[in-house]
Design a binder for these strands. Sequence first.
DNA 1: AATCTAATTCAACATTCGTTGAAACACAAG
DNA 2: CTTGTGTTTCAACGAATGTTGAATTAGATT
Lengths: 252, 252
Amino acid sequence: MATAAQKKRATRGPRRAGGRSTRERILDAAERLFAQRGFHAVSVRDITQAAGVDVALVNYHFGGKQALFEDVFMRRAAVLNEERLRRLEAVVQKSAPRPPRVEAIIDAFTHPLLDRSARGGPGWKAYFALIAQVNNSTEFGGLMMTRYFDPVVHAFIDALRASMPGCDERDLYWSYHFLSGALTLTFAETGRIDNLSRGLCRSSDLDSVHERLVPYVAAGFRALCLRSAAQRRRDAARRSPRRTSTAARAAT
Amino acid sequence: MATAAQKKRATRGPRRAGGRSTRERILDAAERLFAQRGFHAVSVRDITQAAGVDVALVNYHFGGKQALFEDVFMRRAAVLNEERLRRLEAVVQKSAPRPPRVEAIIDAFTHPLLDRSARGGPGWKAYFALIAQVNNSTEFGGLMMTRYFDPVVHAFIDALRASMPGCDERDLYWSYHFLSGALTLTFAETGRIDNLSRGLCRSSDLDSVHERLVPYVAAGFRALCLRSAAQRRRDAARRSPRRTSTAARAAT
DNA sequence: AATCTAATTCAACATTCGTTGAAACACAAG
DNA sequence: CTTGTGTTTCAACGAATGTTGAATTAGATT
């Protein structure tokens, strides 16, 4: 009756010594196919056939197609979150007691992802293409991304807030939103920029993306936050108009 | 035998006077459902039932599910492209003979989209959610976006190049790529930023997006292009090292 | 009124879908 | 060997899928 997923804790080791277990074979095949074609375009039989196992094993090991999808999504999320927090903390420690530069924070956020997508093997590559799909879907986007990634995102937004004091809260969140969109489209690797640039840029060249995404996004963050800080200063001056402060310079 | 789509040019007007034609009813229903659930998660019967017409009419009028999808995608693309080019030309004319500001170009690119998604009615809202899906999918992303939108995008990149002379070509394309990603995630309106910001920001508040996206993206473009221009200047100085030019200021 | 054609309806096609239950298997523990 | 448990296989379920062809309707033309 109950899926084997619950009682999986007290099980013996995987059957086939040396090779991947059945669970892992299914997860790998599902990851690849879901990323390539999307959740609804892939059948359970597609997955089990690619994994070389029986159709019924998806329901036995995971409980169903939807549950398998969430397990695929979950599997690598913990690894990512851990390294991202570790990197963030290292960046903060290194520049203490002053807050780190915006670039360093963005880098701690994006590098663990882009580096794995570029050099982590086909599994990671497929995983990020899957993330790109989930993040932009109204079906899963709001719920799954929130559930698995928002705690880490909050930590990064806290760090950015400390690095840009006086920044409007909404500017912070929308700036992150733009970063998330740019990063997400990158992971999709649709090949559109290849066509658009007539081969000058390649979707798969994630190193080129990273060395540009960080300064691009950092400049965007600063532009919004300096603007809102200036606006706040103007409002304050309007409320108590003793000094006229025309110099609106702020150190980054 | 052949679908009615070809011989549709010499047809009489739609049957039902006053109301929408069957074709339009199917297109509207398909647009809404494809946007909500994605191509593969919607059946032809879902569409025809929502449109209140017979199942067979999708194949009669469009030739099949896939062809219907492309017709939905095509329907509003021409309207968008026309207005975007019109706005771009107006911006260029207004500031002639000097090139327009980067902000003005970005605005001409984004405003026709965000304005329609916010105030164009539920049809346009659904359409942009569909765009968000297509742009991030490896299945349609590279091909359909290229086919229907790249001519316009090239015009905008030409204008940006003229506004930022000396900018590296790859920086231009990648900067556009980041803009495209940020805009695309916005259209999806997944509700994630609502959760992340605990209600402070709302996915549906596209006016807030627009007043932030333009300066954000403009700053990102400038950051990359100034960097590449400075790099180019360094390279030139290295090749003919007569003057040492440490002042790297550039007027925007 | 007779004719013609575009549009619509209806029933059915052959596949494929996710899921299930019972039987068979493998292997460690007793 | 026997028992027991976790795993795999096999066959099949009912429902839903995209598409099709023939019959029917509606409206204009001759």
